[in-house]
Write a protein that binds this DNA or RNA. Structure first.
Lengths: 182, 182
DNA sequence: CGGCGCATGTAACTTGTTACATGATTCC
DNA sequence: GGAATCATGTAACAAGTTACATGCGCCG
């Protein structure tokens, strides 16, 4: 049986500091995007669910002059739910690399088309890798967060994997170039 | 707008040889599993759709004594549809690594729990890597398929990425062991 | 003769995305 | 004043999984 994991990202984030749905989404997009995605269509309803389950509660903005920013806070029950999940066995991830599917059947198309795909792939992930590198530098400089080393471990994962992507891309483009000129 | 990609795996496979739904599923599970997943619930209905669209046609088993094996064959329209897709831009993959999410919040749990998760993660992917290595050896020995080199490129991707997983796992277990003893 | 693998299929469900609506505020 | 961003939300849809049903044939 699969488990709704959106709740745990939310709970995890709120375990560090109070946040609004919008802020959670932004953090995921910037810092988690290389290993996690969420859409508003999942996030907002799940926040409602969590509140109803008593795992989080909302605090209407008071100090703020802005509109209706609804910031959430985690409850003790929320924390224990999060701890429970952390101890549960991890599901194997299911992946779908369209680029590899295309590569697999690439003999059916022109080399140039495939090369363009891989360049695109490389570019996208190079950008992500740069962001990771930046983020790593930032973190290494500021050493005040308590789960600081854990985050660095997560970033390290991304760097290794993305570097592997880059190497593969270069080699595969080379291979295709050679095949083209044959 | 997202695109149903199950059709293209099917078309791609049928572009090489006639296959039944069951056979397609098996090939995906064994050879594609490190970059692609499909369930029967997607596969069988999609075969029906493709047949209705005239991109494939079914051949009821004649030579076979077995039960109702429905083997499919690709049509010229199917081939051109496949070629069209190969030229289209590739969608960025969305990933969800539960293991990294847990690592990120691992300060909230015991080191031993996290270590067990990573050992599990490592074991799973080590198995996959071994299968990839085997498959690569096989392919390097037999050099008769036409898209042989392309497949090797795909396998190479898996090997690089999985090796990165292994390295990261080892280092992260070390890190957690050290943290535990502090 | 029981269990496993072969083989096809689907209904119910969960999960996830997209596209839109709404409106405030900030920045140029 | 218009564009971008902040901010919340949802309905419609698409995608994907799970769990089951059915039954054949082979092997020990």
């Amino acid at each position: 049986m699969r488990k709704n994991k959106t709740r745990y990202v939310i709970l995890g984030m709120l375990s560090e500091t109070d946040l609004s749905g919008y802020e959670i989404k932004k953090i995921i997009d910037i810092r988690f995007s290389f290993f996690w995605n969420e859409s508003y269509g999942q996030l907002y309803p799940e926040l409602k669910n969590l509140e109803q389950d008593g795992l989080i509660y909302s605090i209407k903005s008071e100090t703020e002059s802005r509109r209706d920013v609804i910031r959430y806070s985690i409850t003790p029950q929320g924390r224990s739910e999060l701890k429970l999940w952390l101890a549960e066995p991890t599901e194997q991830e299911t992946v779908r690399f369209e680029i590899l599917l295309k590569m697999y059947f690439s003999s059916l198309t022109d080399e140039d088309i495939m090369i363009r795909h891989i360049i695109e792939f490389e570019k996208n992930h190079q950008k992500q890798l740069s962001i990771l590198n930046m983020f790593q530098k930032e973190l290494t400089a500021v050493r005040d967060i308590d789960n600081h080393e854990d985050i660095l471990r997560v970033i390290d994962f991304g760097q290794r994997v993305y570097s592997a992507y880059m190497d593969w891309s270069k080699e595969t483009i080379d291979y295709l170039e050679k095949r083209k000129n044959k």
